[in-house]
Computed example of a mutant assay.
Amino acid sequence: MQVTIDGVTYVSHESPAWRDEKNYMAMVDLAPFDLPGMLEQLWLREVGVEGSYEVCCIPFYAYGLALGDVVEKGESETVNRFVRKSGRRVLRVLFAEPRPLMDSRSALRRAVDSAGLLSEWNGDRHVAIDVPDVAVMQSIFDSVQGEIQNGTAFWEWSDAKEFRSA
């Protein structure tokens, strides 16, 4: 979900992939990723070391982060440092408007479910998919290939850029 308040757009995760009883939240400033005026709210859970947190949602916009990665947050409740990779990746797909007659969103949902993958949707056009093993991704790519070729869907890996804090 996205909400704009006083010129700042806040992106939140309504149903984080790893919802837990003791979750924390922290913001990631998206300006270092060429998205000025946007903040993404990540769900975190504390791990063994004081100040270290595991990412419990699948980032929609923040680069260099994935489900299970460990980060540190500062006193201002912002993620300020990347600590350790989980070994997972995030595939993000954006479906453009207007939607074509052959809309592949349902096919993508089925492929994600069949592959046993976790995903989070931001609205009905933007999905972030947790990828614990790239070997299971062919059916995911196949489900949206037609739209990607036609320019009505776009994809990227979240690790295409390294994490940076503002």
Rank of each mutant, 00 (worst) to 15 (best):
M1A: 12
M1P: 06
M1H: 11
Q2N: 15
V3F: 13
V3T: 15
T4L: 02
G7N: 05
G7F: 04
V11M: 00
S12R: 07
H13L: 07
E14D: 14
S15Q: 11
A17P: 04
R19M: 15
D20S: 11
D20C: 07
M25H: 13
M27R: 05
V28P: 04
D29T: 05
F33D: 04
F33I: 02
F33C: 03
P36Q: 04
P36G: 00
G37T: 03
M38N: 12
M38K: 12
E40N: 03
E40T: 07
Q41V: 15
Q41R: 13
E46L: 05
E50D: 11
E50N: 10
G51N: 01
G51T: 02
S52K: 04
S52V: 11
Y53C: 08
Y53G: 13
C56F: 07
C56K: 04
C57A: 10
P59H: 05
F60K: 02
F60C: 07
Y61I: 08
G64F: 07
L65D: 08
A66I: 04
A66T: 10
K73L: 06
G74S: 14
G74H: 03
E77P: 01
E77D: 15
V79Q: 08
V83G: 09
R84S: 15
K85Y: 11
S86N: 14
G87E: 01
R92T: 15
V93K: 03
L94C: 11
A96V: 10
E97F: 11
P100D: 08
M102N: 12
M102I: 10
S104I: 09
S104D: 15
S104Y: 10
A107F: 13
R109G: 07
R109P: 06
R110C: 06
A111M: 09
V112D: 01
A115E: 14
G116V: 03
G116K: 02
L117V: 05
L118G: 09
S119Y: 04
E120T: 00
E120F: 03
W121E: 13
W121Y: 05
N122M: 15
D124K: 09
D124C: 13
R125V: 14
R125L: 15
H126L: 15
A128W: 03
A128K: 01
D130E: 12
P132E: 09
P132T: 08
D133Q: 08
A135I: 11
V136D: 10
V136K: 10
M137T: 10
Q138Y: 06
Q138K: 05
Q138E: 13
S139W: 02
I140Q: 14
I140R: 04
F141T: 08
D142P: 06
S143H: 05
V144A: 14
Q145P: 02
Q145Y: 07
E147W: 00
T152Q: 12
A153W: 02
F154S: 05
W155S: 06
E156R: 10
E156C: 14
E156V: 09
W157K: 04
W157L: 10
D159C: 01
D159Y: 03
A160T: 06
A160C: 12
K161M: 15
F163R: 10
R164E: 00
S165R: 03
